[in-house]
Amino acid sequence: MSIYRIAHLSDPHLPPPPGAFGWKDVFTKRLLSRIAWRKKRKVHRPEVLAALVADLKAAAPDHVVISGDLTNFASRTEISAARKWLESLGEPANFTVSPGNHDALAGAGGQERFAIWAPWLGDTGESQFPQVRVRGPVAIFNLCSAVPTAPHLATGRLGEDQLRKLDAALADPAYANLFRLVVLHHPPHEGAVSKRKALDDRHALHAVLERRGADLVLHGHAHEALLGALRGPNGATIPVLGVPSASARPNRHGPARWNAIEIEPRAHGGFDVRIVARGVEAGREGLAELGLFSLTEAVDQRG
């Protein structure tokens, strides 16, 4: 059986373009983010992101998942600039974007603020979630945990309506024999991030996944390489995988990395999944292979 390859990167934190921060923003949470960016810009480097994107393109994956935080202040100028960056990557149908908390940092509007990214969110041409895209043997369930929050908070929330629709989508028999991949920005498992950065309604998501199941959950937000697990139906284990920021030079969280997820259908049902991690190594130019592992074996050893 042929292998389907999905690349996962997250949290590129694109450099703010001119006009990304205006005088009216001093009265919003954007001011705090602007102050924080003075330090963060030393970590999030455009040359690192460019090297990672070049490495990813050379690998020619079948599909690319980007799990949020393309922007820093969520201004209209930034969101528009992020679209231009997405356009530079390739055809929108080959990329799926799940917005992050920085993409909804402040300002009016809900998910409609992402309408300009609609071609990268799903196949409906809308900015509503969840969206389901079928690519090869994979059904991608794209969620949005990005919501505006109070100062000093970076929490996420899916909401009852999105969770209800996810429950129905995961139960749809049309996806029963596909590899069901769930994508969101915030880590859904316990202990991945502090309470002020956590997914507020993660327990409701746990209940949906335990009832309906999934094959893999991808996330960003933590800026670390993380491997976790959630409970699926009948005691099954659902692996959860996160990556560091795609633009980060070596720092306390971990330098830039992307994961190649190789999904191979078995002849008699089910899938074998292998992860190939590629990223920045201190003292070495370019990106290198950091390791590879069987996802099932890694989760079994962890648990």
Rank of each mutant, 00 (worst) to 15 (best):
Y4K: 10
L9P: 00
L9V: 06
D11S: 08
P16R: 07
P17M: 09
G19C: 11
W23I: 14
D25Q: 08
D25E: 08
F27T: 07
T28V: 04
T28G: 05
L31R: 05
R34M: 11
I35R: 08
W37C: 06
K39I: 15
K42Q: 12
P46M: 09
P46K: 11
L49R: 07
L52M: 14
H63N: 09
S67V: 03
S67N: 12
L70E: 01
T71F: 00
N72L: 07
T77D: 07
A82H: 01
R83A: 13
S88M: 05
V97Y: 00
S98C: 11
H102F: 00
G107D: 02
G109M: 10
Q111D: 09
Q111F: 08
P119C: 13
W120Q: 07
Q128N: 10
V132I: 14
R133P: 01
R133Q: 08
G136W: 00
A139T: 06
V147K: 11
P151I: 09
A154Y: 00
R157Q: 14
E160C: 06
E160F: 03
Q162K: 01
Q162E: 15
R164K: 13
R164A: 10
A171N: 14
A171V: 10
P173H: 15
L178R: 10
V183S: 04
P187M: 09
E190Q: 13
A192I: 04
V193E: 03
A198V: 04
L199T: 04
L205C: 06
R212W: 00
G213Q: 05
L218N: 02
H221S: 05
A225C: 15
A229D: 09
P233W: 06
A236V: 07
V240K: 01
S245E: 01
S245Y: 02
S247D: 02
R249C: 13
H253A: 10
A260Q: 13
E262M: 14
E262V: 04
P265E: 03
R266S: 14
R266A: 10
R266Q: 12
H268Y: 14
V273G: 02
R274N: 12
A282L: 12
R284F: 09
T296Q: 15
T296N: 08
E297W: 04
R302A: 13
R302K: 11
